[in-house]
C-alpha cells in the first residue's frame, strides 16, 4: 500500500513537471512573440520591458529561463504582476484558495449526498412515478445555467424577498473567512453551495441510477436476494457498492477541475474572490504571471484529485489491487 502511494506520488511529480514545461513553452517560447512585452502588459514603458527581459533571463537559453521561472514560482515566490503595478502573484493565489476550497468542498458534500440520495431513491423505485419525477427534476437541474440560477437566487435572497423571514438571514455577497467568523462563513456560502451543487446533483443522480440499475441485472444480485437479504441491503451493500467506480471517477475529475478554477461562474455571480475569479480577471488584463500561477495551481489540483481517485479505486474494488 505504501509502495503504491509512493509510486503514485512520483508519478504525480512527473505529470506536474510535464505540465509546467508545457505551460512554460506555451507562454514563453511561442515563436514570434516577445514574452517580456507580454508580461509587461499593454502600453508598458520600454525600460520595464528591458527590466523584465533581464529578470526572467529571456536573453539566456530556454532551460535557464524555465529554471528561473520555477524558482520564482515555488522557491522565492516573488513573481510579480506588472499589469497590477508590482503586486506579488503568489500571495494573491494563496488568498484566493480558501474561498474556492470552501465553496467547492461544501458544494461537493451537498452534491455527493444529494446525488446518492436521489440516485438510489430513483433506482429503488425505478419505473414508478417517483423515479420519473426525480429524473425530470434532475434533468431540470442539469439544464439550468449556473450563472442564471445564481442571479435568480441573488434576486430572491438579496432583494425581492430579503426582508421576509425566508431570506432575512442571508448576508451580502462576498466571502467571509472561516477563521474570522464560522457562522458568517456558512451563512454567506449556503446559497452559493446550493447553486453550484444543483447541476452536479442532477448529473450524479442520473449516472448513479443508471449504474445501479445495470448492477441489478447482474447474477450476484440474484444471489444476494436468494440469500434472504433485505431489499435495502441488496441495494446498498451489493448494487450501490459495485457501482461506485464511475461515481468516484467523475467526482475526482469534477472536484479537481472546480477547485482548479472551474467554479468561475459561481464565484463571479456571488462575488467570491476565488481562484476562478482571479484567473478570469487575469485573462481580461492579459496578466501573464497570474495566469501562469493559476494554471500551475489548477493543474496541481486536477492531478492530485486524480491520484486520490486512483488510490480510492484500490480501496473500492479488490480487482484493482495488484
Amino acid at each position: 500500500m505504501i509502495a503504491t502511494i509512493l509510486n503514485r506520488l512520483i508519478q504525480m511529480a512527473f505529470v506536474m513537471f510535464g505540465i509546467s514545461v508545457l505551460v512554460f513553452l506555451i507562454f514563453f517560447a511561442t515563436p514570434g512573440s516577445d514574452p517580456a512585452a507580454r508580461i509587461a502588459g499593454r502600453n508598458a514603458a520600454p525600460e520595464t520591458v528591458a527590466q523584465i527581459r533581464h529578470d526572467f533571463g529571456f536573453d539566456r537559453p530556454l532551460p535557464v529561463q524555465y529554471a528561473l521561472l520555477m524558482k520564482r514560482l515555488f522557491i522565492t515566490r516573488d513573481l510579480t504582476s506588472f499589469v497590477n503595478r508590482g503586486q506579488q502573484v503568489i500571495p494573491q493565489v494563496i488568498d484566493a484558495v480558501p474561498a474556492t476550497l470552501s465553496l467547492v468542498t461544501g458544494a461537493a458534500i451537498l452534491w455527493v449526498l444529494g446525488g446518492i440520495g436521489v440516485g438510489l431513491a430513483a433506482a429503488a423505485m425505478r419505473d414508478t412515478w417517483v423515479d420519473r419525477s426525480l429524473m425530470i427534476l434532475a434533468l431540470i437541474g442539469i439544464s439550468m445555467p449556473v450563472f442564471w440560477l445564481g442571479e435568480v437566487m441573488n434576486l430572491l435572497s438579496q432583494s425581492r424577498f430579503h426582508d421576509t423571514w425566508l431570506f432575512s438571514w442571508v448576508p451580502g455577497l462576498g466571502y467571509v473567512p472561516l477563521t474570522e467568523d464560522p457562522a458568517g462563513w456558512a451563512k454567506a456560502l449556503v446559497i452559493p453551495w446550493l447553486t453550484l451543487a444543483v447541476l452536479y446533483i442532477g448529473i450524479y443522480a442520473r449516472i448513479l441510477r443508471a449504474n445501479v440499475i445495470e448492477a441489478y441485472s447482474e447474477d450476484f444480485i440474484r444471489t444476494a436476494r436468494a440469500k434472504g437479504l433485505s431489499e435495502r441491503r441488496v441495494l446498498i451493500r451489493h448494487a450501490f457498492r459495485t457501482s461506485l467506480l464511475p461515481f468516484v471517477t467523475m467526482f475526482g475529475l469534477d472536484f479537481g477541475a472546480l477547485v482548479g478554477g472551474a467554479a468561475l461562474l459561481t464565484e463571479v455571480v456571488f462575488g467570491i474572490n476565488g481562484v476562478g475569479r482571479l484567473t478570469f480577471q487575469a485573462l481580461q488584463n492579459l496578466d501573464l504571471p497570474v495566469i501562469l500561477a493559476t494554471v500551475m495551481y489548477a493543474s496541481f489540483f486536477v492531478v492530485a484529485a486524480n491520484a486520490i481517485v486512483d488510490l480510492l479505486y484500490a480501496a473500492i474494488d479488490p480487482r484493482m489491487r495488484t
Binding site: 450476484f220 436468494a226 434472504g228
Partner: peptide
C-alpha cells in the same frame, strides 16, 4: 415479501447457474 425473505437462504437455498458471476466481486 418479508416472510419470503426469511425462507430464502434459510429453508430454501438457490445455487445460481454461473459460479463466475454469482458472487459479489467486492
Amino acid at each position: 415479501p418479508k416472510q419470503m425473505r426469511h425462507l430464502r437462504g434459510r429453508d430454501i437455498a438457490f445455487i445460481s447457474q454461473d459460479p463466475m458471476t454469482a458472487l459479489t466481486p467486492v
